[in-house]
Simulated assay, not measured.
Amino acid sequence: MRILVVGGTGLIGAHVVEVLGEHGHTATTVARSAGADHVLDIGSAEVEQLRPLLAGHDGVVYAARTDEQRPLRKPIHPAFRRDMVDPVVRLFTAARAEGLTRGVVMGSYYTYFDRLHPQWRLTDRHTYIRCRVEQAREGRAAAGPSLPVAVLELPFVFGRAGDRLPNWAGPLDGWARSRAPLAVPPGGTAATSARHVAEVAVAALERASGEDIPVADENLTWHDMISRIADAVGRGRRVRRLPAGAVRAAMRLTGVLQSLGGKESGLHPAHFAGLLLARLFVEPVSGRSLDAALRETFAETTRAR
């Protein structure tokens, strides 16, 4: 297969390129930064700009990054659509026109929980999650039945690709290395490695899957996750538990302050406390250990970032 990887120089995209090569496939990369085969801002590229890049390929992977936590001026839904939904619709419209037969979108495990717990009303409460659902639905509609699109529903992703790290790694690294106390909510999260995500993506391409695919290696409480990060940076120490009431109060205050400033983030703070306090665990997990990916993410070189 010949696969176009959008975001191919990023953490996940770089691993997808590597695994494609190991399986005997050819990858072409597109990214906004130098180092890609084609330098292009996918967020503003039109269908007619994308078609020549897609011509001659069998499939396409969308692995561009989205920042769900950055506060934006209200209303935020149009901005999130421009960032997350519209580029995917244009990409798969162009891919269908060029006769591609398979695709993968790197999504979020919040869409998994939206299906699993509709009573949580995640799409009503969080613009980011609403747009992830729209991204999958509208991207598939643009692709049509001849171009099945698998959506990988990703939790926390650990790992490294050169100097590329998860966007949350720097702050957690600094916190774990500091002398500040470590205190976390009582909930937890699923987690995986960039390498495993890439393997799942390539397998989905090879079988031309159109499924929703939750990806997880381990389910970790926040206590376990932060403890292991502290151990990885050589600053292992006690991790205390924050009372649920304190978490809810802090998130409500954050929401009020954002609102007073006319802003909002993709995960609404007033409702995000409920997600922090929940055990966002995915079943089944692969059972693969995350120890190696943790060490990669929080290696000594991370400190220089």
Rank of each mutant, 00 (worst) to 15 (best):
M1R: 06
V6A: 05
G7E: 05
I12E: 05
V17N: 00
E18A: 13
L20R: 02
G21R: 07
G21T: 06
H23C: 13
G24N: 10
G24C: 12
T26P: 00
V30L: 14
A31G: 09
A31H: 02
R32A: 08
A36H: 06
V39K: 08
I42T: 07
Q49D: 11
Q49R: 10
L50M: 13
R51K: 15
L53Y: 05
D58S: 07
D58Y: 01
A63I: 06
Q69N: 12
R73G: 09
R82A: 15
D83N: 08
D83P: 00
D86F: 01
V89W: 01
V89N: 03
A95I: 10
R96H: 12
R96Q: 13
G99D: 08
L100I: 09
V104D: 06
V104Q: 02
V105D: 00
V105E: 01
M106N: 05
Y109Q: 13
Y112D: 13
D114Y: 11
L122D: 04
H126A: 06
T127K: 00
R130D: 14
R132P: 01
E134K: 02
E134R: 02
R137A: 15
R137C: 08
A141L: 14
A143D: 03
S146H: 13
L147N: 04
V149W: 02
A150C: 03
E153V: 09
F156L: 14
F158Y: 15
G159A: 09
P166Q: 10
A169K: 01
G170L: 15
P171W: 08
P171S: 13
L172Y: 09
D173E: 11
G174H: 09
A180H: 12
A180P: 01
P181C: 10
G187W: 04
G188C: 09
T189R: 07
A191R: 02
A194I: 07
R195A: 12
V200R: 01
V202N: 00
A204S: 11
R207F: 07
S209K: 02
S209I: 06
G210H: 07
E211C: 04
I213Q: 02
V215M: 03
D217T: 13
D217I: 10
D217M: 15
W222M: 04
W222V: 03
M225I: 06
I226T: 08
V233D: 04
R235P: 04
G236S: 15
R238P: 00
L242N: 03
L242F: 06
A244P: 02
A244D: 14
V247F: 03
V247P: 00
A250N: 11
R252F: 04
L253G: 06
T254I: 05
V256M: 03
L260F: 09
E264N: 03
H268L: 06
F272M: 13
A278Q: 08
V285P: 00
V285H: 02
V285E: 05
D291F: 05
D291L: 10
T297V: 08
F298V: 09
E300T: 12
T301L: 10
T302K: 01
A304I: 12
R305T: 13
R305K: 14
